[in-house]
Amino acid sequence: MRRGRSGLAAILPFLWLAVFFAFPFILVAKLSLSHTVLAIPPYAPRLDLSQGLAGLQAFLAGLSGETYGRLTQDRLYLDAYLSSLRIAGLAASLLLLIGYPIAYGISRCPPRTRQALVMAVILPFWTSFLIRIYAWIAILKPAGVLNGALALVGLPPVEILNTEAAVLLGLVYAYLPFMVLPLYAVLDRQDESLIEAAQDLGATPLSAFWRVSFPLSLRGAAAGALLCFIPMAGEFVIPDLLGGSETLMLGRVIWTEFFSNRDWPAASAVAIVLLATLVVPILLFEREQGKVLR
């Protein structure tokens, strides 16, 4: 297609994203600044454009920061915020540690095997996420598969379910393909002759890896870490099913405010705080992806 014309194809997806993705954020922001007068929508103030500028002024005057004020007063929100970032950060680091050897191992295999292995890494992602997390409950619960296996070899049982360790395990498990694939993509594209050159110059295989392959793969590591960190920070299902009541994460707080407390303004305010925190990682991720596109 000739340049310029294909911009036309963008109109429909563009409008779709504007209506269903961008515009709703304005609604969330507005609701987070509303009064919690009633437990049901619509929340005050309402924007009445039929009154023109006066309506807009009345609307702006009616906005209030009271919901955000409540967030700062209750320790629960700050704790949830910090532990979301801590758990997502920790899980991203674990994913790097576990995903790197796997991606590297795959990139060392013969081409045909490599293709099959990449497929094998992707395949679990196609099976239901909820079901895979549910499988871990059956494994980790006190009378579950893991403790059954431990008893067989004469080891004492462990209590992992409903702890932060189980949440980390679940996150690493669910997001592993998202870490392995970007890493594999950069490792696979690496020019093998660079390693050979390093070895010809007397580098041991280990130092050739450490000083050539590894630095060159950092871009994939960054992409993978961001791709995992951003959604993990707002993860709901994993902390809810595998974590105990003390494992607070923002995704869970938003869920509880919305479904249990029916406090929509509070849920919106927490969502805005989470979004604001993730803006920088999201922009970094887009910059990396933009480079891949070009």
């Binding site: 911009g7 963008a10 993705f21 515009f23 609604l27 969330v28 959604p231 938003i254 887009e286 933009g290």
Partner: peptide, 27 residues
């Protein structure tokens, strides 16, 4: 609009589901 469209696509890709769900509901 290319950069904006690409930005929107990648933002949807990583956006935590609770945020997406809540904002769509409000819409």
């Amino acid at each position: 609009g290319r950069t904006v469209l690409a930005g929107g696509v990648y933002a949807t890709l990583v956006m935590p589901e609770v945020i997406l769900g809540l904002s769509l509901l409000l819409l």
